[in-house]
Design a protein around this nucleic acid. Structure first.
Lengths: 103, 103
DNA sequence: CTTCATACTTACCTAAAGGTAAGCTTAGCT
DNA sequence: AGCTAAGCTTACCTTTAGGTAAGTATGAAG
């Protein structure tokens, strides 16, 4: 997903570009409030490969959603601000299953 | 993004699989409450190609988020239920820009 | 001083999303 | 009958996310 100068700055696109991948939201979710070390985080996300985790964390750092303190990963303010979004995503996933389940 | 039997049913993944693509959420957003014809929808989403729109609509129909009535596209109940999610996504996109703006 | 775990990096591959361009079918003007 | 627009479909191409497997650097532990 790339931003072109033709595509005007749309908040939906902004969010999708930051968090639309397979792991970004899961990582933010598993980070919680604490700072977590690479291998610990890996276990919480299982099964993710070293490469994909390292690369995704790098991208999250570049977008300032995550930073590193004392060798551990932690959400930034912008990362923590995903809280309500995360909640809405979880809620929708559940609601969707529920709606499909009824007949 | 594929679902493997190994990846347990996680609501975050469910939502990402349904709506993580480039156009799904935009389409749901532009559909609003009314039923909209293909070409009309295309104009609202500009620039999207015929092929991508047709294909994405097909996928949305398969996941029961959109249906067709009298040749026009309309959100289903599950499609309409994305409302709060959409709002959270827009809100986060704006909040993110705001947070990055403050040095 | 060697072994192991941590935290990555590198090389390589694949599938799929998305894009461009062109064609095709049907219905409705005129 | 001929033309146009709507709504798709088809063929083709490119990019990138994600995955596997292996390698490397560093420090702590035994």
């Amino acid at each position: 997903m790339k931003t072109s100068p033709l595509t005007p700055r749309c908040p939906i696109r902004t969010t999708l570009e930051l968090l639309g991948g397979k792991w970004q939201l899961l990582i933010l979710d598993r980070l919680g409030e604490e700072a977590v070390a690479f291998t610990d985080l890996k276990l919480r996300l299982h099964p993710i490969s070293d490469k994909v985790l390292a690369h995704t964390l790098q991208r999250l750092r570049e977008s300032k959603l995550v930073d590193v303190v004392g060798g551990k990963y932690r959400r930034t303010k912008a990362g923590t601000a995903t809280g309500p979004l995360l909640a809405a995503i979880v809620a929708y996933g559940q609601e969707y299953e529920r709606l499909l389940a009824e007949t």
